[in-house]
Amino acid sequence: MPDTPEQPIVNQVARLARIHLDEQQLKSSGEKLEQILSFVSQLEQVELPEDVIPFFGAIESVNAIRDDQLQTSVPREKILDNAPESDGEFYLVPPVFKQTDS
């Protein structure tokens, strides 16, 4: 297992996950992360056969496929109904300009 994460890495993970954490939260998050990672480091000890195939999903069947058929879309009013901000046609989001990064 890699070493437990240093604080700059915690900051970077928070940035990657788009979660704002203040200094205190970052610190405590780093501590908890360290705690869990040291707990899961026991996986290192598990001996695996060389050819073991990872198991990603509990169902290993194949081919869930649908035909190329149109379904009625959801009316726009209904889709936009839950939107925090919209003009009735579009979702509106704050502008994408320079990050006011610390």
Partner: peptide, 14 residues
């Protein structure tokens, strides 16, 4: 938030 990045981070932070 004032911009998109801030909107993401504050929304998910709060």
């Amino acid at each position: 938030a004032n911009d998109l990045e801030e909107m993401y981070r504050n929304t998910r932070g709060q």
